[in-house]
């Protein structure tokens, strides 16, 4: 990667301890104001420290070991954890939900990461972990948020629009036609955060990845180009995952002969 005359400053563990001082100050403020969040703040700070350090070591090992199956396994675990998170966020947890979420996220993120790494960046070898893992992580994380919103929205829309859905069915609509507005609304809900962030990126917020690349010495222009690709990847992947999810999820509310199930009514 192109760098300037730039010496990356390593951070020692002593430096990390000093930065913990910032948390102590924040906790002091919390106590002073009787906010009662000191404990959470410390637990959060310690979890951040342990989780990130563990990931750091894990990635260091994975990068050194450099085997495609290990990298795919890590991505697979990411998808499983993200799917579980989406499922746990829902009030209506049904048997099939983890599977359809897993499928939607695998399809959405899979296509996206494939296009980005194999067609655009053409990384070599194809599983080059320095690219594959962070890109997949970002895409899966965003798909997870989009999927959570999509499932939550389609569930609530079908409940709140059941009179409208029945009116459509009584006119001879198929279940899909009757649920069209709900499906649309779920996809829109999933996409809005991504669209919002595309609107303000670089103006209101500097994305973490881009900032990270710049900090590590990459030319801002290269960092920006990566960020552009990432934003498009995220939008695409959220669109695909939420499209698949909304279209699979609405089905559980209908019988095969286009009736709303009694549990909904």
């Amino acid at each position: 990667m192109e760098g300037f005359n730039y010496n990356l400053i390593d951070i020692s563990y002593f430096d990390l301890l000093i930065s913990l001082g910032l948390i102590i100050v924040a906790a002091g403020l919390s106590r002073f104001q009787h906010m009662g969040i000191e404990r959470d703040l410390f637990v959060g700070a310690i979890r951040t420290f342990i989780q990130l350090l563990a990931v750091g070591y894990l990635l260091k090992y994975v990068f050194a070991f450099d085997r495609w199956y290990l990298i795919l396994l890590i991505i697979f675990i990411m998808i499983i954890v993200a799917s579980r998170t989406v499922t746990q966020r829902q009030r209506k947890k049904t048997k099939e939900l983890p599977y359809i979420v897993g499928f939607a996220m695998t399809a959405g993120s899979g296509i996206t990461v494939f296009v980005a790494t194999q067609i655009l960046l053409q990384i070599k070898p194809w599983y080059e972990p320095h690219y594959l893992i962070p890109l997949a992580g970002m895409v899966i994380g965003n798909s997870m948020n989009g999927s959570t919103l999509a499932v939550e929205r389609i569930d609530s829309e079908i409940q709140s629009r059941k009179l409208e859905i029945e009116a459509y069915l009584a006119l001879g609509a198929t279940a899909r036609q009757a649920a069209r507005t709900c499906i649309r609304s779920a996809m829109r809900a999933a996409m809005i955060p991504t669209i919002n962030s595309m609107m303000v990126v670089g103006i209101v917020a500097l994305p973490g990845m881009m900032t990270g690349q710049i900090l590590s010495g990459t030319s801002p222009l290269i960092a920006v180009k990566y960020q552009i690709i990432i934003m498009y990847m995220i939008a695409f992947s959220v669109a695909i995952s939420s499209f698949i999810l909304a279209n699979l999820r609405f089905n559980r509310y209908f019988t095969s002969d286009h009736r709303l199930k009694e549990e909904v009514l």
Binding site: E166, A170, L171
Partner: peptide
């Protein structure tokens, strides 16, 4: 076929649902 049946047998509900 259920869709055809529902076209032949129309239905009006208690609360009017307007699109």
């Amino acid at each position: 076929p259920v869709l055809e049946l529902r076209r032949r047998i129309g239905m009006v509900f208690q609360i009017p649902v307007i699109f």
